[in-house]
């Protein structure tokens, strides 16, 4: 009986963790703290080479397998496409606290090429004021440029915070912006990723 009780309590803990985790992730991936990864370079093509998935896909399992990605490259897992977040799908707590204070996060601005790059990030979100936050020490916050080279297979990280101004609220498509990753030395575009902010609760 005592063993049954112990196992039951353990099961309660496990189910609580799983249940909370599923609830949190359902909000993570669509609205409240969307994480995404961006692979560069993509030969300057406008077509995105970026993915949305928590944990990020590894474009290569081993560095020895690097080739001229993106041509012929593959993703380990995840989807390619624009980053889409829907503030209409925020949880009720977020909607009550700060529905228009948004954050998006990439811990995986990943160099999938064959040479190191110093990157400059350009984020355009319909003129909204952005706050940039990173746990990288090699970062120039004025020019939004990494001060170290990112080796093939390695990543850089950045979080962005912004508040949707009143004039952009309450419409189905709040903003269509983009993130550009530029070679800080040659100024060539490495990749760009559309970012769409939607509000599925808004009416036309």
């Amino acid at each position: 009986m005592k063993n049954i009780k112990l196992w039951s309590l353990g099961l309660v803990g496990l189910l609580f963790a799983v249940g909370f985790g599923r609830w949190a992730q359902s909000l993570f991936v669509v609205s409240e703290l969307v994480h995404f990864s961006v692979n560069f370079p993509s030969d300057g093509r406008a077509e995105t080479m970026s993915c949305c998935d928590i944990g990020g896909p590894w474009a290569r399992e081993h560095e020895a397998d690097w080739n001229d990605y993106p041509a012929g490259g593959v993703l380990a897992y995840g989807d390619e496409g624009a980053l889409v977040m829907d503030i209409g799908r925020e949880g009720w707590i977020k909607r009550a606290l700060q529905p228009y204070f948004i954050s998006i996060s990439s811990h995986w601005l990943r160099n999938v090429g064959i040479q190191p790059y110093r990157i400059q990030l350009e984020m355009e979100m319909c003129g909204m004021d952005l706050e940039w936050l990173t746990f990288e020490s090699a970062w120039d916050p004025v020019t939004h440029t990494s001060t170290r080279s990112i080796e093939p297979g390695k990543s850089f990280n950045m979080d962005w915070f912004f508040t949707i101004p009143p004039e952009l609220r309450h419409q189905p498509v709040v903003c269509e912006g983009e993130l550009r990753i530029v070679d800080a030395d040659s100024k060539l575009l490495l990749t760009e990723m559309p970012i769409k902010i939607l509000d599925s609760r808004a009416t036309q």
């Binding site: 112990l6 353990g10 099961l11 496990l14 963790a17 799983v18 985790g21």
Partner: peptide, 11 residues
């Protein structure tokens, strides 16, 4: 004790 271990397993 079992709740904490169960939560860790759930993680």
């Amino acid at each position: 004790t079992p709740i904490r271990y169960g939560f860790t397993a759930g993680l």
